[in-house]
Nucleic acid binder design. Structure first.
Lengths: 206, 206, 206, 206
DNA sequence: AATGAATGAGCTTTCATTCAT
DNA sequence: TATGAATGAAAGCTCATTCAT
């Protein structure tokens, strides 16, 4: 299938983010160059640089959330599904940590922001937050069905529990993996971290 | 006591951040205006705008960590101290969420960053991370002394536990307080959240 | 009769001018949209945007001059004809004042102009100027025939006299009609202005 | 006396207009180069390119009107003064015809204009128009005092009379001087044109 | 030491023009 | 013949930094 120009532009943008550009210093010219198209072409499809970036990110995140939902749909048991989800966080983290963490914490912080990039992102944020919350709830409901937890806790509590499990992976990857902490290597296998993460959920809600 | 020029500049910068400027769009001119000094003066004390911002942030965070350590030093019991720490997160969040969350997740993400602001921040990050880890460990050690937990867990585990407790406050403030989630208000009192946060630590390590 | 593509393009262009676009900010895309044709099509018939605009204007002016000449051809007496011409200036002014005034003063001013639109216009100017002069002369000759004036004055004098009569209408419409001048309304009926304009010619040459 | 930066910028702009740039295609970079200053400097003194150009023109015109008023103040008799004014039009025309004619016809034409340059000009136009009208009235009043005309005509009539006299000079310079019209040279001396122009005023109001 | 006027590199965006279909 | 997606040169404007005072 031929990629639409939009997708081409999204992917060029995301690949710049992978190259560790900070969002705010991505240049339209860079995107065009990566995508092998003219600068002007970008403006045929988007109204501004900010729109390109914010939509590219939304595009990526929606993809991620979808991937994780697909895992749930496979109708394996809760534990298997959730562990599989956690395991899938690793490759997602690989290159796009900032975005990943940023969006897990999609926040009202930029509410009064003067920055137009952030203003535009908020338009997508609500939608993404909804999708994410929906995914979290599916996870929780599955654990309920299987009796892993006995009774559905408050919204905040189950949100925080799922989030913490995922955070476990993120924090490990972001701050411990391949690094010395207190001059000590703190290395675990991926499977060990998944174990800890899964355990976090159970401890918090079980 | 007379404020040093540096401090004057730090505070002007931080006050801009409180005004919800995105880091990357703070202008040297704005800082100078806030500080009531000339633009040129800033360059007598710093080599670049990036240096000003990153050091201002480091200055703020070190202050925060110090404040939290001071609470521990007051030699109240563990539970009282830790709850007091958690309670102190709220005002810190108030205006500087982005920074706060950003630094809790001080990460290797910007490792290869093209962005010079982030490059400079890393110089301070290691130092700050060390201070933070140190604070976390003091917390954990205190809980050990009092038998709240029985045996010192692995570095990653205790780090994650303290971090999760703090995250509980952050996530509540950032994503639930004063907002509808799933069209529902999910309001808790500050004390209820402190309760949940403290409980998180206990559940994870207890 | 089917309109030629060229005419279609001229009319789209002129209608943009009526909409009060400044000449220099008319976009090829706007013309194409107005004309309901593709942008590329315009370049099948014209070499550049400037050519389109300058020829559209020439097309319009030649039309005007022709209209005025037709009035003279009707073989009414001089006074009736000239008054009729003056009366016909009003609707011409309506929407295209800038053009109208610009062309009455078609000038050598743009002689060394760097601007390519004006360079191209000059190609048409000479032709239009000739037509206009010819019209003026016909008017003067008619007045001679009827003894309104006794003897044919110098070229500059009769040109200036006809021009002043027309200017009388233009200046009234452009600067007095529907406006306060010195905080006073200075309103005349169209017929009163025609009277003044006609009188101007007679006073200057009679 | 040292020229203010503003004046420097005005003069650079006006000198570009003398070089026959069309207003709309003057580049900020050109102005800066002419003025021997950096592009950025211009934005220290003006908010936009349009502001620079429109204020430069207003600056020039106010200068002209002042020059002509000064002549009236010299308290020579009417005829001498008015002829002197007319004589002074020639050098003003020399290089800035477009502007000169444009402003004599300062018009409501651009009222609904989409073009921001013209929008800004209008802010100055009213002021300039007032000054011009004031000058015209002084001329007329002087002619009244000396009995050149018997009774003060209507506003429109005296405005049109003075304007026509000036137009006589302008049209001669713009369309006849140094040009062939109908293949004939139509050359007059400057003094002959002043004679015709003065005569126009007298014929129209006398 | 402190300043802020001056700078110009570097950015986003526009739009006339081309050309494959 | 007609098209409009693609282009990239060109322009306005911003702002970190310098440096004469």
């Amino acid at each position: 299938m031929v990629k639409s120009k939009q997708e081409l532009i999204y992917e060029a943008t995301l690949s710049l983010i992978e190259d560790n550009y900070q969002l705010t210093q991505i240049k339209v010219g860079d995107i065009a160059k990566k995508a092998n198209i003219g600068k002007g072409t970008i403006y045929e499809y988007f109204d501004s640089k900010e729109e390109v970036i914010s939509e590219a990110i939304a595009y990526m995140i929606k993809g991620w959330v979808q991937e994780l939902e697909d895992i749930l749909e496979e109708n394996e048991g809760f534990e298997k599904s959730f562990r599989s989800i956690l395991r899938n966080i690793f490759p997602m983290m690989e290159k796009k940590q900032q975005i990943f963490m940023g969006f897990l914490m999609l926040s009202k912080s930029s509410e009064n922001s003067v920055d137009s990039l952030h203003k535009l992102m908020e338009k997508n944020n609500e939608d993404i937050q909804k999708k994410l919350l929906h995914l979290y709830e599916k996870i929780v409901d599955k654990s309920l069905e299987e009796g892993i937890i006995n009774e559905k806790p408050d919204l905040f509590d189950w949100y925080f529990a799922v989030n913490s499990a995922i955070m476990c992976v993120l924090i490990y990857e972001d701050q411990f993996a391949n690094q010395k902490v207190f001059s000590r290597n703190v290395e675990y296998s991926q499977e060990e971290i998944v174990e800890k993460a899964y355990g976090t959920f159970v401890k918090l809600l079980g």
